[in-house]
Every structure is written in structure tokens, then in C-alpha cells.
Amino acid sequence: MYMKWWRFAASCRGDEFRCAVSNFCLAPSWRCDGEPDCGAHDASDEDPYMCQKDFKCRGNSARCVTPVEGQFTCVAISQFCDGERQCPDASDEWDICDNFTAGQCDALRCELGCRPTHAGLACYCQPGFEPDAAGRCVDTDECAWEDACAQRCSNTRGSYECACAAGYRLHADRRDCLPVNEPEDEPLSLIVVTAEGIRREWAEGGARTRNHSLAALNVRAVDFLHGERSVCYVHHNLSKSGIVCVDADDFGRRRALGTPPLFPDVGGASHLAADWVAGNWYVVDGAREALYVCSRALAHCRLLLDAALGKVHGFALDPGAGLMFWTVWGAAPPAVER
């Protein structure tokens, strides 16, 4: 388990961080990790002026001076010195606006105009555009922003449009995606995994006309195949382990998949994920510290990664984007990797 530590000393070691108030000495990985660690009334290890010194606003906006809850905010450049307070600290109307005249923008050759910011004079453009190095307004590629759309993004001139993958519909906010229930009237249910077995539970109760539970030893790797309405998991027994799938509507109907050629015993598998686009399996083997990809029937497998995978605690696929995500913690600081 990855544990945090701190110590109080007259002087900190060369790579340690000294807290401003408590004088605690922190491990360097604690500084700017998003969590205050210096003790009560001391958040100096998360000081935004230190942790976000390289923070930059997007092309057509500029930074307010004072961070809010540890985060700097941005305001459109055109809203600086317009007589209305937009920044939480009103810094867009501070003394940078004193004696400003539009004639001061001539040297920048701005297409629309400029305004004073706390980084100096800056050109501005209409929404959906941003100034280039020559002061001309060019289209902003909003799809380059990580938070533009939840799933799919299409850039248009002066704007952009979000869309969703099959099985999802666009939320009213035009950004997020909501899952489409199939069939539409099916009630919400959960697949619950414990040390003793697997069961399907309905959030609002309801009659169970079929078998929806089974005994299984130490289940750690599980995934749901929506297209086949199957729950697949690594089944452990006293002699050998294997991957088993059961019908989500009747756990009495089960089938065992083939044996992977690269690792005939999947007892060390800690995570299992199905690629619903290509039909492949992704298996994280914690014992071997390796990640494998296998064909649907497990007849063909290939080693993808074989380093630093011994402490994986979560694994997920985004087949539509062709990405893998996993969380790691233990000997190293916690991280989400892809």
C-alpha cells in the first residue's frame, strides 16, 4: 500500500518540501498532488502560485489574479476593462485599466482590438476565434480541449458540435452523453461481486423468475458483455482457474472459454475487460505483471505490456477511442495512466 509520511525537523532534506506554517517536511511527491498535507490551517504544499505557475488561459481569454479554491480562473480578453466586473476578485477592472486608450493597440495590429491584461496588452476576437501571432482572428479548435465533449467532437468555424457513440444519446447540455437503456423499460440492476460469489441485484427490487446468483471463489476479474447479455469472470477452483461467462438473465446457463496459449492458468488475472468493438479480451495478470490481449475465443493472445503492472487497482477500456485506462498505486505515487 502506498502511504504518505511527514516529519518535523529543524531543516528538511534536499528534496523535501517545508510547509510554511507547520514546518512539516513532506516527501516531494506530496507537493502539488491536489491534496493539502501540511496540517490544519496550512495548505502551502498546494499553493496555486507554486503549483500552477505555468497555468495559461485559452487563446481568447486571460487570467484573473486571485485563485478561487486553489484554482485560477479565466475571463474573455474582451471583458477586461469594459466597466463590468467578471473576475471573482474584480481584477479585470483593476488599475491596469487606468489611462488605457484604443490607440495603444496600434502596435499589435489586432484585427478587432486589444485590452490590458495582467500579462500586458492582448488582442481579442469574437467568441469561437482567437488571435494568432500577427493579431488576426483564426478559428479556435475547441476539440483540442480535453473537456470540450464527453465522447465525440467535431470542430466547425467559430464553434463545435458534440456527439455520442452508439448506445448513448446527447444530454440537454449538448456536451455530456447519457446511456440508452436497452430494452427501454428494463429496470436498473447491478452485478455484485463478493469473495463468495456473484449475483445480480435490482435497485428497486422486483421478481426474479430465474437464477441470478452463483457461488464462486475469490472473484477479482469481471466484465459485462452487453451485446451478449453475459457476465464473464475468472473462475477459481482448487486445481485450475479459467474464464467463465454466464447468462445475465439466468446464471444457470454458463460456458467456459478456451485456455489462453500464453498463460494457460489465469489464476493470477486481476482485471478482465472486453473490447465490444473488436471483440477482444484484455487481461491484466498481476502475478506476471503483464497485460495481454486475446481474441474472442482466447485462441490467440499477445503480450502488450510487461512492466510496472504489479500494482494495478483498476482497468477500463474506451473501445470507441481506442484507449486503455488503469490506476496504479503501491510503490509509486497513485496515478491514472492510459
Rank of each mutant, 00 (worst) to 15 (best):
F129T: 10
A62D: 06
C19T: 02
S44Y: 10
V75H: 01
R18T: 15
P28E: 14
C110D: 09
N99H: 12
L108F: 11
V75G: 01
R18H: 02
A27Q: 14
F17S: 07
C87G: 07
C64I: 01
C57N: 07
F72H: 05
V68H: 10
D33R: 00
C97Q: 14
P48T: 09
G70W: 07
C74P: 06
Q79C: 11
T66L: 13
R58G: 14
Y49V: 06
C125P: 04
R85E: 14
Y49N: 13
R115H: 09
N23G: 06
G128Y: 03
A20G: 06
H41M: 12
F129I: 05
R85C: 06
S61A: 15
C110R: 00
C57R: 00
R85S: 15
S22I: 03
N60S: 11
G128H: 02
I77K: 08
E69M: 10
R18E: 15
R109T: 03
S91A: 10
R85V: 08
A43N: 15
C74M: 08
E69P: 01
S61L: 00
A40C: 03
I96D: 13
E46A: 09
I77Q: 05
S44P: 07
W94A: 13
G59M: 07
T66G: 03
G34R: 00
G83N: 10
E111H: 15
R18K: 14
P36M: 06
A119Q: 14
F17T: 13
S78E: 15
C81L: 05
C74K: 00
G39Y: 01
V65W: 05
C51T: 10
E35D: 11
M50W: 11
E84M: 11
F24Q: 08
D106W: 10
G128N: 03
T66R: 14
P36K: 00
Q71I: 08
A122Y: 01
I77D: 08
Q126C: 00
L121R: 04
G103R: 11
Q104M: 15
C57P: 07
D95K: 12
Q71D: 11
R31S: 07
C81A: 06
C38S: 13
G39V: 05
G39F: 01
L26Q: 01
C51M: 11
G83E: 12
G103D: 12
